[in-house]
């Protein structure tokens, strides 16, 4: 038998988890049929020139269960997600559109809380929601409420960022602890008999991206959402054909995230964040970026967590290596299915 990828017949939840299945879905359908010179499905935002002004444009959809969780709601998430996609592209987020798909039977009271938290998030992030649309779907056809937001930001022409700029020797920085959002949402579901007071990291990352945008050695930024740090590293490795080498010892993980992962058998490096930035910076200026981040509240736990290395043993494949605290090494594979709690 030969190793040929077989096409699935149905969409599964794994096609939405930010890992391999989702990438293959996008490549097979959306990128295939909707191709045009501007569409690059690897990027968070597209950079457009309109009447000589350069802007960034992006869109994002939001589903989360439960709708409210410690540190945020689906409403604040809908703002942060789009703001953050613009911010990591090096843009200043300005205007957002909003689509709401509300399920019949949703309570006004809860929806009001969600919209309020959305308003607060928008005002904190300095963006305005300038157009929108509302649909109500029959009971059973939605999970309370889904949102979709699109956003426009203004680009600073002098500071273009891209994965193509990444060189061997560049350092990898992260702005704070990893996996807090994924874990907080999991705990809020209370389905594994686990409880905790961990808060989601959901926040606008614009202060973080703005603080370092003027650094010449800044090559690329990305916010590690679904699929976590490991998935961002895979995108970088695949695009650059270089090895992404991480030092486990330096990766900041909240104690509660660590315990929950130990109990359920999850890997925090694959869990979602909603308010963190991964930055690739030249070795010479990495300490400067670290200091800039650490001087602002949301970057207090920033760390240099790894470096870009030439090639690697597994050519033609994404190559993400974790050097463990014990001095061993393992490959971080592309996320396959959604992780499941262990049963042993």
């Amino acid at each position: 038998m030969i190793n040929k990828p077989q096409k699935e017949k149905y969409i599964s939840l794994a096609h939405g988890n930010g890992g391999r299945y989702m990438r293959e879905l996008i490549e097979r359908l959306f990128a295939h049929y909707l191709a045009n010179p501007l569409l690059n499905t690897q990027n968070d935002s597209v950079l457009l020139t309109l009447d000589q002004r350069e802007i960034a444009f992006t869109t994002d959809g939001f589903t989360v269960n439960p709708l409210e969780f410690p540190g945020g709601t689906i409403g604040s998430l809908a703002i942060h997600g789009t703001v953050n996609d613009l911010a990591v592209a090096g843009a200043t987020p300005k205007y957002l559109s909003l689509n709401a798909f509300i399920e019949e039977g949703m309570s006004f009271e809860q929806l009001e809380r969600i919209v309020k938290s959305m308003a607060e998030a928008a005002s904190e992030a300095g963006v305005s929601i300038v157009t929108g649309d509302t649909k109500v779907v029959p009971r059973g056809e939605g999970a309370g409420v889904f949102f979709a937001t699109s956003g426009i930001g203004i680009l600073d022409k002098d500071h273009s960022l891209s994965m193509e700029k990444i060189k061997a020797g560049d350092q990898i920085l992260v702005s704070g602890t990893l996996g807090d959002h994924g874990t907080a949402v999991m705990l809020a579901r209370e389905q594994f008999g686990l409880k905790g007071d961990l808060k989601s990291d959901a926040a606008s990352v614009f202060p973080l991206t703005q603080a370092i945008l003027k650094i010449e050695g800044l090559r690329f930024m990305r916010d590690p959402t679904r699929g976590g740090l490991a998935s961002v590293c895979h995108e970088i490795s695949r695009a650059t054909q270089k090895e992404v080498h991480l030092f486990q010892e330096n990766i900041p993980i909240h104690e509660q995230v660590d315990s929950v992962c130990e109990i359920l058998g999850y890997d925090p490096l694959y869990l979602a964040c909603e308010g963190r930035v991964v930055a690739i910076v030249s070795a010479e200026q990495s300490e400067e970026v670290l200091k800039l981040w650490q001087s602002i509240a949301s970057g207090a736990n920033a760390c240099i967590i790894g470096e870009i290395r030439e090639g690697g043993i597994r050519e033609a494949q994404a190559n993400v290596v974790l050097e463990t605290e014990l001095g061993g090494e393992r490959y971080l594979e592309e996320l396959e299915d959604d992780p499941l709690p262990r049963i042993c």
């Binding site: 890997d267 463990t324 605290e325 061993g328 393992r330 262990r342």
Partner: peptide, 17 residues
């Protein structure tokens, strides 16, 4: 004799350390 052990061993890269 535990999948959890095997996972921890592999995740921490214990074999080659």
């Amino acid at each position: 004799v535990c999948g959890g052990h095997e996972r921890s061993i592999s995740m921490a890269g214990i074999r080659n350390a």
